[in-house]
């Protein structure tokens, strides 16, 4: 059982602040590090993995500093985001080399390859592997010494749905065994399916932390904005504003559309088609205008 502690950590590159005064603890089980691209997730994971020094603050594993301390790698397994591996090796040679660097051997390598179900392709050159296969061999190389902490940077990027499911299953198993598993993702659904605990990072700040349901509620309860075009915008606007699920409507004359702010997401999505039908108005366009993750996240930061 191991716990990572990030204590008032900031990291800047020149004038750019990538991580801004973040404090969090990551314990046993699966934790998702969620945030939009460029939020500082990789910077944070790199600091937890000992590949980057914090500009201020400390990153420790069970009290030991991680930066400039090679001995922590006996407990940490790292699955980097970058694709580059030793492509000229076969999968087996690569995992065996990783085992040897830990002072272990072929037996442990074989066990790790079995864990990720890559034995069938272990004698092929890594250069011939698909993205999902590479990801699994990277996993095997990180698991070879049976680490108590596993750090994965965007592990699901570029994986097909089946590979994604397999990896999720594997990570879930690792978490259930009492390992500390931390993975980063910018995709809400991935985190939702896998992580019991979530840390949200937005623009380098620690925006939210906790149980998934709490964060999900924060996300769905936020005001939603829609852009709607119809055969009779003004009549539709008048009918919608009468319902409490709608907080405000702008008639955008230039665009020839309505900009609607809904406060009750579930009720509004049901209301809109019903009202249109009742008034014989044809809906031409209904598009959510702020579904981007960035807006979801910025809402979370404000919350």
């Amino acid at each position: 059982m191991s716990t990572l502690h990030i204590d008032h950590v900031s990291r800047w590159f020149g004038n750019v602040v990538a991580v801004n005064d973040v404090t969090m603890g990551v314990g046993p089980g699966v934790t998702g590090l969620l945030g939009p691209n460029g939020a500082g997730k990789s910077t944070l994971i790199n600091m937890m993995g000992g590949f980057l020094a914090p500009s201020t603050g400390t990153v420790t594993l069970d009290g030991q500093p991680i930066w400039r301390n090679e001995s922590v790698y006996r407990q940490i397994g790292v699955v980097p985001e970058r694709e580059a591996m030793y492509d000229f090796l076969t999968g087996r040679e690569f995992v065996v080399a990783n085992a040897e660097l830990h002072g272990l051997g072929a037996t442990e390598a074989q066990r790790a390859l079995a864990t990720v179900e890559m034995e069938y392709a272990q004698d092929r050159k890594i250069a011939t592997y698909s993205k999902g296969m590479r990801q699994r061999v990277k996993m095997a190389s990180a698991l070879v010494h049976d680490p108590s902490v596993l750090l994965l940077d965007e592990p699901f990027n570029g994986m097909d749905p089946r590979q994604r499911m397999q990896l999720m299953e594997l990570l879930r198993r690792m978490g259930a065994q009492g390992r500390t598993v931390l993975f980063s993702s910018h995709i809400l659904e991935e985190v939702e399916q896998l992580a019991s605990h979530i840390e949200v990072i937005v623009a380098g700040r620690h925006a939210a932390s906790g149980d998934f349901r709490r964060i999900r509620r924060l996300m769905t309860d936020r005001p939603h904005r829609y852009l709607v075009r119809s055969s009779d915008d003004r009549a539709l606007a008048a009918a919608l504003i009468a319902d409490p699920s709608t907080a405000g409507i702008d008639v955008d004359v230039a665009e020839g559309a309505l900009r609607i702010q809904a406060v009750d997401f579930g009720r509004f999505t049901e209301l809109l088609p019903r009202v249109a039908r009742a008034h014989s108005i044809r809906l031409l366009t209904v598009s959510p205008s702020d579904e981007s993750l960035e807006s979801v996240f910025s809402y979370l930061v404000a919350a």
Binding site: E70, Y73, R82, A84, M85, Y86
Partner: peptide, 10 residues
């Protein structure tokens, strides 16, 4: 970046 596999070792 593949040096990470050497660096992440004791």
């Amino acid at each position: 970046g593949s040096i990470v596999y050497l660096l992440a070792k004791p």
